[in-house]
Write a protein that binds this DNA or RNA. Sequence first.
DNA 1: CGGTTCGTTGAGGCCCATCAATCTATGTGG
DNA 2: CCACATAGATTGATGGGCCTCAACGAACCG
Lengths: 259, 259
Amino acid sequence: MIEVSQIETSIVLRGPSSSRLAGTRLLKSHLLLNEERRALDNAVSPPRSVGAGTDLVQEGQRTDNVFIVVDGWACRYMTTSAGGRQFPGLVLPGDIGNLDSLMFDRLDYGVRTLSDATVVALPRDRALALAALHPGIAGTFTWLALIENVMLSRSALSLGRRDARQRLAHLFSEVSARLAVQDGNQSGFEFPLTQEQIADAVGLTGVHVNRTMQQLRAEGVIVTRGRTMLIPDVARLRRIAGFDPRYLHMDAAADGGLS
Amino acid sequence: MIEVSQIETSIVLRGPSSSRLAGTRLLKSHLLLNEERRALDNAVSPPRSVGAGTDLVQEGQRTDNVFIVVDGWACRYMTTSAGGRQFPGLVLPGDIGNLDSLMFDRLDYGVRTLSDATVVALPRDRALALAALHPGIAGTFTWLALIENVMLSRSALSLGRRDARQRLAHLFSEVSARLAVQDGNQSGFEFPLTQEQIADAVGLTGVHVNRTMQQLRAEGVIVTRGRTMLIPDVARLRRIAGFDPRYLHMDAAADGGLS
DNA sequence: CGGTTCGTTGAGGCCCATCAATCTATGTGG
DNA sequence: CCACATAGATTGATGGGCCTCAACGAACCG
């Protein structure tokens, strides 16, 4: 929060509108020049507040906007014809909901808020125009897409080859790792997902998620109080999950980047 | 094949070396100018022939090259600490094996050939330099990354919410759809995967893949002869799989793109 | 205080994993 | 040309992890 207001004031000096993308993963890209950051910020719509459970984009719908969830949680969701639902990804505060809309006019998943959220829209044509003009912006888009790739690949390993206990441990590991970058390194964090929604994220049933989380609680691996989760021993959780934070590429400086 | 030789000759006129990327998905990008196509072709290493089962990049290894599988099949593979193996993606002829290496110096998966293959390497620094210089190349990289995103997301739905029969149908649907673009629309195609490898792709056991494929054969959904597969009724297969080819974004012209 | 959402618990069953053996095709050396 | 080895496909028996169905409890809310 402190960091956010700092960024806001520093940008207010430059343009007529305060920063709408402050704290966003897009703006945090190390590939961006400050000038490009400002250009992105100006290209984006005014923030909109939406309630939990509203569709930013419906499954299979077409859209011309890339939605950035400045605050709050959302999910990408898909459904089978039989009614099964799966979240291919969670959208955490500051994340982009539908980067695919940068290139494709139709989305094969939907984006829905899981909590009250404030959202900002980046029109595709403006995004593409900026990318064509600014190499840093273009590089940031691939960078963001590749990070999602990494998370989706790891998720495939979980869904395909891990049991319920490990899948849940992996989900909690990933979420805590992704949040840690934005919130500083706390061991407790907001986790607004319903058990049913957790089930949709890890490919299980709500009932089984319940039983498995009870087991994890009994072991002391996780502590839940209301909608907040606390992980007493992150290393242990990660050991259970087989989770290696090194491949999340959150600290971009450690990677090759533009070199 | 006809198309390939056309591209070759048209490029031979321009540069000293014949096209190394002909027929490759990278070169087929609709975002590319011919000048950019030539630049990419010149940035790439000479083709190398490798046998089946060789690692282009080992799991968790660092590399400075993006490998393009000009011919033959490969897979991205990951393993759990318990020894479970999962393919987050198949690399078909003309596909890029490790696009992630464009931005990250360390890969969290490995890339291994599934058949004899000829491979070409694109050094990261050269790729990034080209991307910074040519908007079409930069856009192509995001486009490729986003396509992989789509496939990974659909795979997540399969792994999380579909049974063995549907998963196999989905795999065969996707492979046939991806191949159709390159080979013309045939109903039969080379499918060099072992049943064990199919199992690694869909998150099942080799034994169960065997039984389920027998069922699909008995129903006449698929016909296998040696390493070639034939799908008598593609529509039926796709119905079983819940597969919608519209979201594969193979015919790029139909999409928004650069507009 | 009735309704709704979400968490929890129990019973029963199925899909798929596991283990292990057999069969077939292919290749190799003597 | 045959004995042998190996990789991959096939089959059977058994068990377990997770699903399904169903009910109940708890928290929240107008």
